[in-house]
Amino acid sequence: MVTKGRDAWQHPQVQLARGGQYVGAYIVSLLLTGGPLWLVVRHGGTPWRLMIIIVACAAALTLVQAYFWPRLDLSRTQRWMTAALVLFIPLVVMTVGLTAWMFATLYARTMIPVLLHAPAFGY
């Protein structure tokens, strides 16, 4: 049941740790959060363009952190974790996306008088 014959820290999952990659991911993460923040605070662009930048940075951050921090790749030790994550992403997108879609027009359709002319999202 246990990892015999060697020290536990020599397990392949422990040996995935890479100091340099951690630091690199850290710096990229700060850039990918600080950059959009700077744009937002300075109102650097239309709301639409800003939203695209925010979404793109969040997606990039996800990839960077998932790869360099928990080290989700297709190696033998990690592939089931990666597969599980990949299978869950559509579920997350569907939960949030389909809910947003159905509620987008719901207020207007349910005929609450003050809301008949309300925009779908935002203000």
């Binding site: 959060t33 959009p36 937002v40 925010i54 979404v55 969040a58 951050l61 996800t62 928990p70 203000y123």
Partner: peptide, 26 residues
């Protein structure tokens, strides 16, 4: 380690879609 990285993931989305997006739309 997984847990600690995972809460970082949550924070990416909270920061992006609550804080940044909220500041855009207000």
């Amino acid at each position: 380690k997984l847990f600690w990285f995972f809460q970082g993931f949550i924070w990416i989305y909270v920061f992006s879609f609550v804080y940044l997006a909220g500041a855009v739309h207000g």
